[in-house]
Simulated scan of single mutants.
Amino acid sequence: MPDPDDRRPPRATWLRSRAATTALELVALAGLLVVDLELGARLAPGTPGGADVAGALVTALVAVVVAVVALVRRRLPWWLATGGVLTVSAGGSLVCAVVGSPSPSLTEAAALVVVTASGVRAAPTSRAAAGTAAAALVAVVGGVALRIGPQATDVLLAVLVWGCAVVAGVAGRAARTRRASALEEARRAERAELARELHDVVAHQVTGIVVQAQAAIAVARTDPARATQAFEAIEAAGAEALAGMRRMVGAIREDAGPDAPVTVRYDLADIPPLVDRFDAGRGRTTSRVEVPDAPLAPGIGESAYRIVREALTNVRRHAVDPSTHVCVRVVDDALRLEVGNDGVRPGSASRGSGGFGLTGMAERVAALGGTLHAGADEADTWVVRVEIPAAVTR
């Protein structure tokens, strides 16, 4: 099952990445400011008048303001950062046009590109993204017309740059949507996994409680000692069911830590205790569980445990005084699992329980590339056979 935290870098790494990006942007904007100052000094007339000085000061002030806002845009609401830069830029263009000293700025142009792309990406709705793109187009084209002049080449170049910024924003928006969809899919998978786990735990333990209670009722008058053993088994099964449910509920609580497991993890070593709980005295149950020295591939051992648990739960439901065998071993880099029993009630094997146990088994085995057979071998027997390839990691 995919974990949404695996797709997200650790917090320290994320902060370093964000700091590095901000530092690069700062260096780029600072370099553009230096270029703007150099170009302004070279293009300035020999004896600048008051209008020239005013235009240069306004352009420099606007360039610094929009550069700062572009740098801190991630700390501001998207609409405030985008709207602030566009408003300041449009205001600077109007002032330059009024004083009669057009003065374009590369720093301001770069800041407009950055906030246009980030604004289109961060807008919560498609309508808001379209409005952001339209406002940026007005600011960019208006700035070119007021500061340079309504020349077709300059306007087309400005529209081309604006289009590139919008395309970048749309691409980022699509990536954000895909990531959100993937996270939602992961959450749905986690909820489905929790539902299956809760079904398995409750079905296994409650079925055992019901069987033990029936046995206690049957022998209560004739053999009080056996009734006492049955009640002790009921108590143990109930306590384990409560513990399992507490662990799962703790995993989905809002105040659970980010590293808290979503489900309770099991492995092959947990199968013998499971069989002991199924048949405490091992009077009618035999088991052979071989745990390999090499580690199993992820999910193999846990799936084997859950399949055995579901199979034993079905034995309790559908068999009367069964003789049961459990065999789990690794052969030729494949995990082979078999759970069989006799004493199946007539018709119970074909009817099924109406639940999702066998379906869950099939899903787990198919996800691991294995094969599953569950059915009657003879008139009163039932067997579950599973083979999962590549069980051992080398």
Rank of each mutant, 00 (worst) to 15 (best):
V275N: 01
T222D: 13
L198G: 00
I209M: 03
G257I: 01
V210C: 08
D223T: 09
L198C: 03
D259T: 03
A216C: 00
R288W: 12
G208T: 02
R188Y: 07
A280S: 15
A256D: 01
D255C: 00
R196S: 08
A195F: 01
Q212W: 09
H204D: 09
G257Q: 06
T285Y: 03
F278L: 01
A237P: 08
L194I: 13
A186Q: 14
V201N: 09
V210Q: 11
E190T: 10
A230V: 07
D267W: 00
I271V: 15
T263A: 12
P272A: 08
A260N: 02
R288M: 08
A236Q: 15
A213M: 12
D293L: 09
V289H: 06
R265C: 04
A215I: 13
T222M: 08
A218P: 06
T286H: 10
A256C: 06
T207A: 13
A189Y: 07
T263W: 10
V219C: 11
H204A: 08
G244P: 01
F231M: 14
D270G: 01
A233Y: 01
G250Q: 03
A233H: 04
Y266K: 08
A225D: 11
D267E: 00
Q205I: 04
S287C: 07
V289S: 07
A251L: 00
R196L: 13
A237K: 09
P261T: 00
D223K: 03
A237N: 11
V206A: 15
R284V: 10
G250F: 02
P273S: 00
R191M: 14
A230C: 11
G244V: 01
P261N: 00
G281F: 11
E185P: 11
E197S: 10
A218L: 05
T222F: 04
A269S: 14
L198I: 08
A215Q: 15
E235H: 15
T207R: 10
R188I: 05
A227P: 04
V210G: 10
A241I: 04
A195K: 09
M245A: 14
I209T: 06
P273V: 02
T222E: 10
D270I: 03
L242T: 15
G257C: 02
E254R: 13
G238L: 06
E235V: 13
P261W: 03
D279E: 06
